[in-house]
Write a protein that binds this DNA or RNA. Structure first.
Length: 199
DNA sequence: AATCTTCTCAACCGCCTCTCT
DNA sequence: TAGAGAGGCGGTTGAGAAGAT
């Protein structure tokens, strides 16, 4: 309502970033560090919204990002954390070094959600879907592919086992809530998730 | 080879929360 | 305590790629 927009939209670029814009952003952050997103575009000579710069840096340009496919372990970690935290992608991302919340969110929506559905598991509640047969939910070609892959990757994952025994690697997913010291980081520490698998 | 359909993921949008005054 | 500014988050969108017909 009475809120001013985060940036002057009339003079900002939108859409895909160019190589030159990337380089400017990287150079500016290397020189001045992260933060000050509202003033950064002007300082860096970018015709971009500050939020856009932040997103580009966090999701794509950060040097510590791990690109490439998710591993099986990461899959299971995401599923377990989602069961615990729900759609709190930033918290989930905090447990997966090199992965971003956006990346995990996309991966969840495009792969894991279907994977769970094909297993007969409700991706929201993480409980078995009783009423509907799994095959009725997995109708698209990719969903069928997922199923085939799972069958091929060793029959070790029988559907019965999948339904009754959610795999929890070495994750202690118990929540320890204590009075908030500051913001999320402290909360994350309080989570007490000791995924020794990641060690 | 051309067209249509489906999938993927980078980016945007709007709201919420935190911090500062 | 209230209000404003800034950062952060999650949902959604759309362009391009890949696959199917």
């Amino acid at each position: 309502m009475g809120r001013s927009p985060c940036c002057e939209k009339a003079h900002t670029n939108k859409g895909a970033w160019t190589k030159e814009e990337d380089e400017r952003l990287i150079a500016h952050i290397r020189a001045h560090g992260e933060g000050g997103w509202r003033t950064l575009p002007r300082a860096a000579g970018l015709q971009r919204c500050g939020k856009s710069c932040r997103l580009r840096w966090i999701n794509y340009l950060r040097p510590d990002l791990k690109r490439g496919n998710f591993t099986r372990e990461e899959d299971e970690t995401i599923i377990n954390l989602h069961r615990l935290l729900g759609n709190r992608w930033s918290l989930i991302a905090a447990r997966l070094p090199g992965r971003t919340d956006n990346e995990i969110k996309n991966y969840w929506n495009t792969h894991i959600r279907r994977k769970l559905l094909s297993r007969g598991v409700d991706p929201i509640t993480h409980r078995p879907i009783d009423e509907r047969a799994p095959s009725t939910t997995a109708t698209s070609s990719s969903e069928r592919k997922e199923e085939e892959q799972q069958q091929q990757s060793g029959g070790e994952e029988s559907s019965a086992r999948r339904q009754q025994e959610p795999k929890c690697p070495d994750l202690n997913l118990e929540l320890c809530i204590s009075p908030p010291l500051r913001r999320e980081p402290s909360f994350q520490l309080q989570l007490g998730i000791t995924d020794s698998a990641a060690e």
